[in-house]
Write a protein that binds this DNA or RNA. Structure first.
Lengths: 105, 105
DNA sequence: ACATTAACTTACTTTATGTAAGTTAGTATA
DNA sequence: TATACTAACTTACATAAAGTAAGTTAATGT
């Protein structure tokens, strides 16, 4: 192995290329949301969503806020670092609109 | 489940969020390259690289060219559709430079 | 005839993800 | 008092994806 890639780029790509992570961040661009809402909107299983949100919190990309109501309400939102990924998402959006078709293909 | 995501965006993210795919495309932005060069530059195993290149060829993102020399030379390069992903990669690069540190963290 | 080289494949192990049931905490209802 | 309800997780177990290393192929060169 003689890697030539920038380690920061590699790290960034490593984050985004975990399954579901990109869609979760994209979904959170719409604003703070609860666990079960993200789960159904994105179509990810609770097991993996739980794991991903923890990772993203550790990376400082997502913030978790607890509201002690009944039943407890917990909201996830993007930090500044997380919102900074919006241009990435917009470019993916642009590419997909230009190069992918809407039907099953 | 009541998904709210654009199916084309989902498809695009599905492609990019396969492990290694993003790094392979990024690596190919530097120009046409052979199998074993990509393998060592990116650090992906031959088994998975083979699989990914096939997928990307099927998606019309990567082109495979055979040069009947000895031993045979095969070069992989990005198609127009593939090169159109450059802005995505540049935004990820920007984000990683702004928000990630160079050391192990 | 044997060695060499790139580009794969195959067989097998380890890790990640999907699925579905179970847990926790704080009320509300019978 | 006992049971129910709800969101947010966890756990246990099954399936799918990725890592590792050895093997295959085809066209020379020694």
């Amino acid at each position: 192995m003689d890697k030539t890639l920038c380690p920061r780029f590699e790290k960034a790509m490593g984050l985004l290329s975990q399954r579901w992570t990109g869609l979760i961040i994209y979904q959170l661009l719409a604003g703070p949301q609860r666990f079960c809402h993200i789960e159904s909107a994105v179509g990810v299983s609770g097991r993996v969503l739980s794991e991903r949100l923890k990772d993203l919190e550790n990376e400082g990309i997502v913030k978790r806020e607890v509201f002690p109501e009944t039943p407890v309400r917990i909201e996830y939102s993007l930090t500044e670092k997380g919102r900074a990924l919006e241009p990435v998402m917009r470019e993916i959006e642009k590419w997909s609109k230009t190069w992918l078709t809407d039907n099953g293909v």
